[in-house]
Simulated assay, not measured.
Amino acid sequence: ALVAYVGVQPIVATLALLVGVRGLANVLVPQLVEFRNPDLIALGSSSVAGIPVIVLIAAALTLIVLFVVRRTTFGRQVVAIGGNRQASELSGLPVKRVLLTVYVISGLLAALAGVLATARLQASDPTSLGLFIELSAITAVVVGGTPLTGGRIRVLSTVMGALLMQLLAATLIKHNLPQSWTQMVQAVIILAAVYATRERGTR
């Protein structure tokens, strides 16, 4: 609503809510809390044919998003609005409604990711769980070839970018390097990917 109807810049709204909600979480849950819910434990530890349920859920959501983006009117509207909001408004697209829907879906998926992460760890700690994960998300999107300026969505490439970043993090951990190294490498990758995208766009 802040972006669609009030006109707040997306990055400003994102950072403001990120800081505010994380602060609220720290107030409500100031320390590590372990969960003993059997359903939550089963969700985080169960597998089907040797494949973790969490991976299957992620794969199913990827296919759903891919279908929506490529095969539905809503998906085409999202791409059009991301490319040029003003032109989309002039052409009669329901820009505000689409933006609101996109952010609602994004929030629901983020909440689901939090539940899955908690189920996998069987514990929750707002001071550390999910910290800087927004940087990993941005990196995956940029590495996947989706421009930050909008107008194009690469779902499968974004998934590949996320897997690449996880591989990078695992490699650094295996070599006993601190988490701060991963963050610095991610920052460099974001800058390099944005520069490469910009160069392709100017040609």
Rank of each mutant, 00 (worst) to 15 (best):
A1W: 10
L2P: 11
I11M: 11
V12M: 09
A13V: 12
A16V: 12
L24P: 00
R36G: 15
I41Q: 02
I41D: 00
G44Y: 11
S46G: 08
P52N: 14
A59Q: 05
T62K: 04
I64W: 06
V65N: 02
L66P: 02
G75C: 01
R76N: 12
Q77T: 00
I81D: 12
G82S: 13
N84H: 11
N84E: 05
V98Q: 01
L100S: 07
A113M: 08
V115Q: 10
A117I: 07
A119D: 01
L121C: 07
Q122A: 15
A123M: 09
D125R: 08
P126V: 03
T127E: 12
V141P: 00
V143Q: 01
V143N: 01
G144I: 15
T146K: 10
L148S: 13
G150H: 07
R152G: 08
I153R: 07
V155T: 15
S157N: 15
T158M: 10
V159E: 04
A162F: 03
L163G: 11
L164I: 13
L167S: 14
L167K: 03
L168D: 14
T171D: 11
L172C: 09
I173L: 08
N176G: 03
W181D: 02
Q183N: 08
Q183P: 04
V188L: 10
A192R: 00
